[in-house]
């Protein structure tokens, strides 16, 4: 059902001669993984997108709600025909939601998924997971 993703960061056979991050009983050593360079990079990449995007959409939404509640004169200004600023802003909320969704999906596919594979490569070969 899910295709194996092309994964440039995946630890291939050639470079898998480094020790796998497993604890004594063969389970993943989560402490070591958490501190690994690859995992830290994954965290930074997630934060770099998710934090600004979340702040952006929440503040845009709250602004819209506050304008609707306290600036109805401004929101009632006609733009074309009977369509006013408020309706346009409401419609733009839909548009920005779609844009952020698509941008995140793309970013995750290009930057996050390969890095997840890289971290998973620290623990085992593909078949062992």
């Amino acid at each position: 059902m899910t295709k194996a993703l092309p994964s440039p960061g995946f630890a291939t056979f050639e470079d898998s001669d480094h020790a796998l991050l497993l604890s004594g009983d063969g389970e993943p050593d989560f402490r070591a993984i958490q501190q690994s360079e690859d995992f830290q990079l994954l965290r930074r990449r997630i934060a770099r997108f998710v934090i600004p995007a979340t702040i952006l959409f929440l503040s845009w939404y709250v602004t819209f709600v506050l304008l609707s509640a306290y600036a109805d004169d401004f929101m009632s200004t006609p733009v074309f025909g009977v369509i006013n600023v408020g309706l346009v802003c409401g419609f733009l909320q839909f548009v920005t939601t779609i844009l952020i969704t698509l941008a995140y999906a793309r970013y995750a596919r290009k930057k996050l998924d390969p890095q997840v594979e890289a971290v998973r490569g620290l623990v085992a070969d593909e078949e062992m997971l």
């Binding site: 389970e27 993943p28 989560f30 993984i33 958490q34 995992f39 965290r43 971290v119 998973r120 997971l129």
Partner: peptide, 20 residues
């Protein structure tokens, strides 16, 4: 702290969850 490491690694990568 150990569980926190496990949870964070698992949440972000799926390691330890058995998911592919």
């Amino acid at each position: 702290a150990d569980k926190q490491s496990e949870m964070e690694v698992r949440a972000l990568t799926g390691i330890g969850s058995g998911l592919r």
